[in-house]
Amino acid sequence: MSTEPVSTEPHSERSFDELVREADEADVSGWDFSWFEGRATELRPSWGYQRLLAERLNAGGATLDLQTGGGEVLAGALRMAGRPPGMSAATEAYPPNVLKATRLLHPLGTTVVAAPDEPPFPFADGAFDLVTSRHPVKAHFAEIARVLAPGGTYFAQHVGPASVFELVEYFLGPQPEEVRRGRHPQDERAEAEAAGLHVLDLRLERLRMEFHDIGAVVHFLRKVIWMVPGFTVDAYLPQLRALDEQIRSEGPFVAHSTRFLIEARKGRD
């Protein structure tokens, strides 16, 4: 999403039905968020994941990007890197994203492997010097440690706890504390260390989001499917109509995403 303030006038003049129909028909494959330009904003973490990823790719060695989506983030980092990677692979489970990522990443020297998000990964022990991921559904640290070479690094940006829960709870109601705590960085630190990884860096930030029209809400929930599982326009039509009225009368719907950066190294023993 854009990080800059936007004018919402062209969209606010359109009807609920027009906005929802457009969002419901839009392509949601990959992790390209350009559709939200002028309709929603989200502040970015201060660390600049893609830039830091490019620096690590520049070090060379065999690399693996897990749950690459449409390959957009990895492709940008590869283009930013000062030299092409060594052996480079990426995994993705969703078939439309596999096709999109292959078209994008193959010319950049990266092989895309159609593979489930769940273990086991289809790679040999110790095959990679660097394993990366941006917003994995779940980080399987034991399997990450298995495919890392001794001295290898896991570098990733994860979704943090209670991310965008203002929107989640608008549709689903208050969530129990154990759900709100899910994806907590300290819990993931413990999982990484239990798998034999030494956590070098762990940073968490809470970032403001604004949805400027109901179409942006619909598109977001169709794209980020784990926020409101099973979301469809028909299933949540009353709530969508009420939220549309709220945005028109009160201004953007405000939520907050949470993100954390994690870097962990496998021992050489």
Rank of each mutant, 00 (worst) to 15 (best):
R181V: 05
R189G: 00
V218D: 01
R241Q: 15
V164T: 14
W47S: 10
L200T: 15
I262F: 06
D117F: 14
P229W: 09
S257P: 07
A195M: 00
E193H: 03
Q175S: 12
R259I: 02
F211N: 03
Q157F: 01
L43V: 13
A54P: 10
S2V: 06
E169N: 07
L78F: 06
D125T: 15
P10R: 05
A115S: 12
Y236T: 08
G173D: 08
Y94E: 10
F211G: 05
R51Y: 10
P252G: 10
K138V: 15
E188K: 13
F231E: 00
F171K: 02
L99V: 11
V159H: 05
L52I: 02
F253Y: 12
V147D: 03
A139S: 14
E178I: 14
G173L: 03
Q50D: 13
F155Q: 03
P116L: 06
I144F: 01
F16V: 06
S15L: 04
P5E: 08
D117W: 11
D269H: 12
L64F: 07
E205W: 04
I225A: 04
P252M: 05
E9T: 07
S34G: 14
P174E: 14
H135Q: 11
D65Y: 03
E22M: 07
E166N: 10
V164G: 00
G109S: 05
A190F: 03
A162W: 09
V113N: 01
G152S: 08
V254I: 15
G71L: 04
V224C: 08
S34N: 14
S133N: 12
L105T: 07
T68C: 11
M80W: 06
Y154H: 11
A114Y: 04
R189C: 00
V147R: 04
H11V: 08
V159D: 04
R21A: 15
G30C: 07
Q186K: 15
I247W: 03
V228E: 02
Y170W: 12
P252Y: 08
P229V: 00
L53V: 00
L221F: 08
A75V: 07
T63L: 01
R39V: 01
E42D: 13
G182W: 15
S29V: 09
E210P: 09
M1W: 12
R241C: 00
A190E: 12
V233W: 02
F128Y: 09
F36Y: 15
E118A: 14
L66N: 05
S7R: 13
M209A: 12
E191C: 08
E9W: 11
S15P: 07
G151E: 02
D234E: 15
V137K: 13
E25A: 13
V254E: 10
D32M: 11
H256G: 00
H198M: 13
V233F: 12
D234F: 13
Q239N: 04
L19P: 03
A75W: 03
E210I: 05
R203Q: 14
L243R: 00
T102N: 06
R14L: 14
G151I: 02
A81E: 01
R134L: 11
D32Y: 11
P10C: 08
A89Q: 12
G182M: 15
F171L: 14
D213P: 01
P85W: 02
E55Q: 09
